[in-house]
Amino acid sequence: MSAVLQGLPRTVLRLHRTALLGWAAAVAALTGWLVWLNEVTAGSVLDSLARCRRTDLCHDAFTGLDYSEPTGWIGTLVSHSFLAVAAFAGGALIGRELESGTARLAWTQGVTPTRWLTAKLALPALAVTAGGTVLVLVYRWGWGAHRSLMGDQWSTGDVFVARGPLTVAYGLCALAVGALAALLLRRTLAALGAAVAATWLVDVLLTEYRADLWPKLIRTSPTPFTLPDGAWQVNRGRNAGGEFAVYHPASHFWPLHLVETGVVLALTTLATTAAFLVLRRRAA
């Protein structure tokens, strides 16, 4: 029995090596793309902009899109990588084995359902954490390297997620929700769709209420005023006292980011606990 238990991680790795290699390739590709943009493309764009200022032939200014657009797409892919994790967890990782009956076969070979699910989740969780951490670190470096060529801000949805541990938290949450969906539905395609939809809904809701996760600042003045550089303006208007603005300064990035990370990790814990409870009932 001990030999079977020791071989569980190896079995999981063998069964899902294609997905793990695909994840590693995606991390490497996005990292290489961002390095190329900052080390090669950015220099060419800056040279074009300098020529534009010297000669007044400013059609070359549009070459700035060669840097800003791909960088924006990388941020989108990093921040939404959790959707791929949810699809994998609900479909291939758990759903397919429950639907085919191989999970129950494993439970008759000296592996308890709890140990089976633990082994199933542990290796992907390690891969999601390691790959997500690499993407976050590289994206933080790339996003801050040439700010003059970018038009986004720290409060932009994709940028907000991709610049910190929230990326990893969403990935782990997607893994747990995918496992729970598969255990509840026991059908590969249904679990895949439900996992993607559920994690997407979590992201939409938290994005909608993100500004409320930390106390906002309010500034009022009888005359027009300008907010500090990098401020996230949540609301602005006029009242009896003059002009007012509700905003988050740039220093609020980490409080907002860490609070949302905590919320997502709490949901991850709940989904993981629920998955083990459902498994215990199914196995009984």
Score class of each variant (00 low, 15 high):
V45D: 08
V85Q: 02
S44V: 14
F82W: 03
L49H: 14
S100L: 09
G32D: 07
R104W: 14
E97G: 02
V35L: 13
D47T: 14
C58Y: 10
A92W: 05
G91R: 02
A42R: 07
T31E: 09
L105P: 02
V78I: 14
A28P: 06
R51C: 06
D60Q: 14
H80F: 14
A103R: 03
P70D: 05
D66R: 13
G75F: 02
D47H: 14
A86S: 00
G64T: 07
G32C: 08
T41R: 12
I94F: 05
G32W: 06
A28C: 08
L49R: 15
A29W: 07
H59W: 15
R104M: 09
V35Q: 07
A29S: 11
S100R: 12
W36H: 12
V85T: 01
L30N: 09
L93A: 04
L34M: 15
S81K: 00
G64H: 01
S81M: 02
R51G: 08
I74V: 13
H59I: 13
T76I: 11
C58K: 11
S79F: 04
T41S: 10
C52Q: 12
G72A: 04
G91Q: 01
I94R: 03
A89T: 03
A84Y: 05
L77T: 08
A42T: 10
L77V: 13
L37A: 13
A28Y: 10
R53L: 10
L34A: 14
V40Y: 08
G95T: 00
S79W: 06
G91S: 07
A26Q: 08
A86F: 00
R104D: 11
G95A: 03
T41L: 06
A61V: 07
L46W: 08
S100T: 14
G72I: 03
N38S: 13
A42S: 11
V40A: 12
I94G: 01
C58S: 13
G64L: 03
V85P: 01
T102L: 06
L57A: 15
C58A: 13
E97V: 01
D60G: 15
G64R: 04
L65V: 08
A87G: 03
A103P: 00
T31A: 14
A26V: 14
L65N: 12
A92G: 03
Y67L: 06
F62V: 13
S100D: 15
T31K: 10
A87L: 03
V27F: 09
V35I: 14
A42N: 07
F82K: 00
A87R: 00
D66H: 11
G90A: 02
A28D: 08
R53S: 12
S68M: 04
E39C: 06
L37N: 07
H59Y: 15
L105N: 05
T102F: 07
A29T: 12
A26H: 05
R104F: 10
F88A: 01
C52D: 13
L83E: 02
G91F: 01
L30Q: 09
T31G: 10
N38E: 10
G95P: 01
F62N: 11
